[in-house]
Simulated assay, not measured.
Amino acid sequence: MLSKEDVVQIYQQHEQLWSKMSAHSEVTWDLLPWPMYRKPNSAEEITSGAVDAYIMSPHYPDQDKSTKDRVRQQLRRWHEDHFNQKVLSKVNERDKERVKAAAGTVTRNLNNLLERANESKKAGSSVFA
Rank of each mutant, 00 (worst) to 15 (best):
R70K: 15
R70N: 07
V71Y: 00
V71A: 06
R72D: 11
Q73K: 13
Q73L: 12
Q73T: 14
L75Q: 05
R76L: 09
R76Q: 14
R76V: 01
R77Q: 13
W78Q: 07
W78S: 10
H79V: 02
H79Q: 13
E80Y: 02
E80L: 02
D81F: 07
D81Q: 09
D81I: 12
H82Q: 06
H82R: 14
F83G: 04
F83H: 06
F83S: 03
N84F: 01
N84P: 01
N84E: 13
N84Y: 02
N84R: 13
N84T: 05
Q85L: 12
Q85A: 10
K86V: 09
V87D: 09
L88M: 08
L88R: 07
K90T: 09
K90R: 15
V91H: 08
V91K: 07
V91S: 07
N92T: 14
E93M: 11
E93D: 14
E93C: 01
E93Q: 15
R94F: 09
R94M: 08
D95I: 12
K96D: 05
K96T: 07
K96P: 01
E97R: 12
E97I: 05
E97P: 00
E97T: 12
R98W: 05
R98P: 05
R98S: 15
R98T: 15
R98V: 06
V99T: 09
V99H: 08
V99P: 08
V99K: 05
K100C: 08
A102I: 08
A102K: 04
G104N: 03
G104R: 03
G104I: 04
T105W: 00
T105A: 09
V106E: 02
V106Y: 07
V106D: 03
V106R: 05
T107M: 08
R108E: 09
R108L: 09
N109C: 15
N109K: 03
N112E: 13
N112C: 08
L114A: 09
L114M: 11
L114W: 07
E115L: 06
E115C: 00
E115S: 10
R116P: 02
R116E: 13
R116T: 11
R116Q: 12
R116Y: 04
R116C: 00
A117G: 08
A117P: 05
N118C: 02
N118A: 10
N118K: 14
E119H: 11
